[in-house]
């Protein structure tokens, strides 16, 4: 948790990341930036999915529709936060010459998305309409 707070402080203080270690090869930094953008696109896709559930399943019962949509939106927010945090951690690890950070977030996200997808299939097939 303390580590996370320190990372959050780094988001808004760009000059502090430059104080540590040596500047890595710019190609590695650009690759890290593209990974960040890929996570941000994942986040945007989840948010779009939330909108889609809300708009294209209008016959569904209110609780199910809103629950699924909010689940996808929350996953999108988490994904965006994690994108920045992971980018900062990778950038710092590269500057210090350490190993890149590992994370269980991709596994958790895939399990979450799978659960939402199964719930959606069940809800649409059973047809719990409002």
């Amino acid at each position: 948790m303390i580590e996370f707070v320190r990372n959050v402080r780094l988001w808004f203080a760009p000059e502090r990341i430059g104080e540590e270690g040596a500047t890595p090869d710019y190609r590695f930094s650009l690759a890290n930036e593209r990974t960040f953008l890929a996570w941000l696109r994942t986040s945007l896709a989840l948010i779009g999915g939330g909108f889609a559930v809300d708009q294209f399943l209008p016959d569904l019962r209110w609780a199910w529709r809103v629950g699924l949509a909010l689940g996808l939106l929350a996953a999108g927010v988490l994904c965006a936060l994690r994108a920045v945090n992971h980018w900062v951690r990778c950038e710092r690890a590269m500057r210090r010459g350490e190993d890149l950070p590992v994370s269980r977030f991709p596994a958790l996200l895939s399990i979450g998305v799978a659960l939402v997808a199964v719930a959606m299939v069940v809800v649409v097939l059973v047809g719990w309409e409002g």
């Binding site: 941000l40 986040s43 945007l44 948010i47 939330g50 909010l70 920045v84 900062v88």
Partner: peptide, 19 residues
């Protein structure tokens, strides 16, 4: 990091609007 957080904050704010 300021650029990165600006992009991520726009995304999160879109999610808040969606909510």
């Amino acid at each position: 990091p300021r650029h990165a957080s600006a992009a991520a904050l726009c995304t999160i704010a879109l999610a808040v609007c969606a909510t």
